[in-house]
Each structure stands twice: as C-alpha cells, then as structure tokens.
Design a protein around this nucleic acid. Structure first.
Lengths: 225, 225
DNA sequence: AAAATAACTTGATCCGGATCAAGAACTTCT
DNA sequence: AGAAGTTCTTGATCCGGATCAAGTTATTTT
C-alpha cells in the first residue's frame, strides 16, 4: 500500500489480533463506543444499520483484507452494526494509536486519506446502483463485485461461495427475496451461471458485464427478432 | 470545528479564493486532475457522475459551508463532476498543502478524519433512502434535509428556494420527473407545504418528519376509516 | 430418523411509480 | 413583443418488481 517495510513494522506494533467470531456474533453494534478499525483476516462480515421502521439496511459484505469501521470515526460511536456471516478472524487497529502514528508518518496519513476517500467513492457507486439500475443489473453487479474481489485475493473469479442468505442479498440490493431467487434461476436458465444454494459458478462473465452496463435491453430485443 | 484561532490562521494561509462561477459552469469534471478541495461560500453546486449508459447520477446538492471533492483524494483524479446551479463562490484548499499542514497539526488531522468519516455516514443514509423508501418518503427526506441545512446556516427552515430543477431532484432521489412533480402537488393539496416553482414553504414540518419515518402508511389508513 | 424450523423457489396477483402523451407556464433569444 | 425552446404539470397507460400464497429443500432439534 505504498508503505516501507519499517512503516509496516511500526503499524504492525499497534495491531491487535482479536479472538475469532462465530456465525451470528457481532463485531460491534450501532451505538457502541468506537475504539478500533478492524481488518478482516478470514471469513466474512455483514454491516448493516437499523432503519427507523424496524427493518434493517444491509450496507455491505466484507471479505478478508477489507477494513471496516471507517464510518464510526466521525463521532466516536459506531453508526452501524457488524456481524460475522461465518467463522471470522479480525485484527483490531486502535484508532487513537493509528491517528498518532499517522501524525508522524506522512505516508500512513496519506494512505488513510486515500482509504477513506475510496470508501466514499464506493458508496457513490452504490448510489447509482440503487438509484438507476434494474434488478438484473443489480444482481449482475453484485456477482461481479464478488468475482473481482475473490480474484484479487487469489481465489477463483468464477467459482465461489456466497456466505450470505438470499434475504440479505435482496436487502443489500434493494430487492425482495423472491426477486433475487428468480434472477438466480433466470441467469442459470440463460447459461450465465450455475448456482446451487450458496455455491455460485459464473459461466459467462463477459455477458454479465454486458448486463451491468444495461447492454441487455438492446441485446435481448435483438435476440427476440 | 475544534481548531484554535492560530490553527485557523495557518489553515487560512493556504486557502485560495477562486473566481466566482456562473450557473452551468463546471467547478471540475470527472477525470480532471485533483488538486484542491473546495468549500462553497455562496450559491450552490450539484455533483454528479456519468453512469455507463449515457445518463448521469446526481450525487448531491451542496450549500455554502459544505466541502466537496473528498471522493477525489483516492487516486488524484476527480471521479465525479461538479457544476454551479447558480452564481457560486468557492474557496480552494490545495490538498497537498492541507495534507502537509495536517501532518504537523494533529487537531487538523483529526478534523479531516472526522470529515471524511462523516461523508461516508451521509452516503450510507442515502443508501437506505434509495434502497427502501417510497417516493413520498424520499421527497420528504429531501425537503427536510434542505430545511435543516438552511436553518443551520441561519436561514429560514420553512421558506427557501431550491436551485435545482425537478429533473435533478428526481435523478438524485431515483424518481421520474413526473413523480416529483406529482408529489409536490400532492404535498401541497395535503397542506404540508406551499410550492411555486423553486420557492418552497414548508407548512407542517412535524408531519413531514412523520412521513420520513413511514408513519404515513399507518396514518393514512386510519384517516380512511 | 422423525419433527420442527428456516431458507429457498415458484406461481399468481397487485400496485407504485415509470413511461408515454399533451398541454401550460416560464425563459431565452431575436 | 413574438417565437422558440425549456421546464413543469397533469392525465392515461403500462410494467417491473413487490406482495401474497404454497410448496420444496435444507438445516437444526429432539
């Protein structure tokens, strides 16, 4: 990440390895006092925030290597909750120490600014997804996001397990469970993928990218001729 | 913002007052080299990003006192565009200088982290809006957001001008122009507000808050008895 | 292994909001 | 001031995806 080995070492000295969490355990809850950022080292995590009328909004699914808790810096309290989707290990980075360290390590400070900014960028992409895209485009985007992130981590880009339920996927994408289920079936019928419960195999990644770009409407009207 | 007067002075020394922009002028465009954050001092600004299929997604409307450009830190390029909605004045804060300054001013660094984190928090609120809320709830949320922001700046919380078009409001809220127009009419019919083109007068702010919380469904079914 | 529960799928129906269409009000240009 | 182009409003229709309703397949409990 643009840090020297000795930078890394200093950073490493403040990192605490937390105990592992089991499926359903909370890493933190909305309202909890904020003290640490967390990096997921194995497993996966869902972040969500309760919305006024009792339900919840899933904010994200997080894989190993990803940092969570950035939203809590603003007022020393967690604004959302984080829950383990499977057995999950995390490292904790006490924020006050990270802040002090970044004061004397410009490269770390720079990296922190970039990280926070990237998070903002990712959120705005999600705004476009929820504001303008069809159900099909949403699920394709979702699947390719996982594909890319698994690939980046050295796993298969086309064969992976989703640790969250259909319900959680729907909530995240602003869709009903039934719609998500139907879309998986449809994508499978169209030979875009093979799905069996949580196990997904992407069979035609290029066409999934076409769908993301809405190329789909034009294309399907062609094939209907 | 938690800075001492002398901190402010040092910060002030790097701030550049830019020339004023007229309606329709771009402050920056997606892809432009990023060099400065900007604080709006008067007028208003729309930020938006082009989405793959030609259209655009409005990301936000920004009023005096607000900071824009935080999303661009991540890779030295602007990821979205910013355009003046009316005659607008801004201050530019060269980011590299701000970064250096924050290295030697822990309080400034702290403030920057909070600011970036707050932006993330705001984006996630917007995700809930777009993911789960009805058209009514969206417009009520939108109006109350402006009400609060104007109030905070010493202007009327119930009587203000919106500088953006119905089309832009719709785009921002994930709604069609026609829906926005109809909702304004409906809200007026229900004596929630008075609207005449861009001039809005909120007549029943408490009920607008009820609508935001979806209290509306229950209530309207009562009144139908 | 059977029973209970939870997660998922599939079908039928419904509805909120999009889209299409046209007119009205406002702005800008000449 | 008149013409032309915008922006906004209002009405009619349509459709994507929500909701309702069952049935099916996993998972957990006993």
């Amino acid at each position: 990440m643009g840090l020297t080995p000795e930078d890394i070492e200093r950073l490493d000295s403040i990192i605490k390895r937390g105990r592992p969490y089991h499926r359903g355990d909370h890493l933190y809850r909305g309202g909890d006092k904020f003290h640490s950022l967390r990096v997921i080292t194995s497993g996966s995590v869902k972040t969500y925030s309760p919305n006024e009328d009792g339900g919840e909004q899933v904010l994200g699914f997080h894989l190993p290597g990803e940092l969570i808790g950035l939203d809590a810096i603003q007022d020393d309290n967690h604004t959302c909750s984080a829950i383990a989707l499977e057995t999950t290990a995390v490292c904790e980075i006490p924020f006050s120490q990270l802040e002090s360290l970044s004061s004397i390590m410009p490269s770390l400070q720079h990296q922190m600014y970039r990280l926070l900014s990237r998070e903002i960028g990712q959120d705005t992409e999600m705004l476009t997804l929820l504001g303008k895209k069809s159900a099909e485009e949403r699920l394709a985007t979702f699947l390719l996001s996982f594909s890319e992130r698994f690939k980046q981590r050295g796993f298969s880009a086309s064969d992976f397990f989703l640790s969250m339920s259909r319900h959680e996927i729907g909530n995240y994408l602003g869709l009903a469970v039934e719609t998500v289920s139907r879309l998986f079936t449809r994508f499978q019928d169209e030979n875009l993928l093979h799905v069996e419960r949580k196990h997904v195999q992407l069979l035609d990644i290029p066409r999934l990218y076409d769908i993301v770009q809405g190329a789909d409407r034009a294309k399907s009207s062609q094939s209907r001729i």
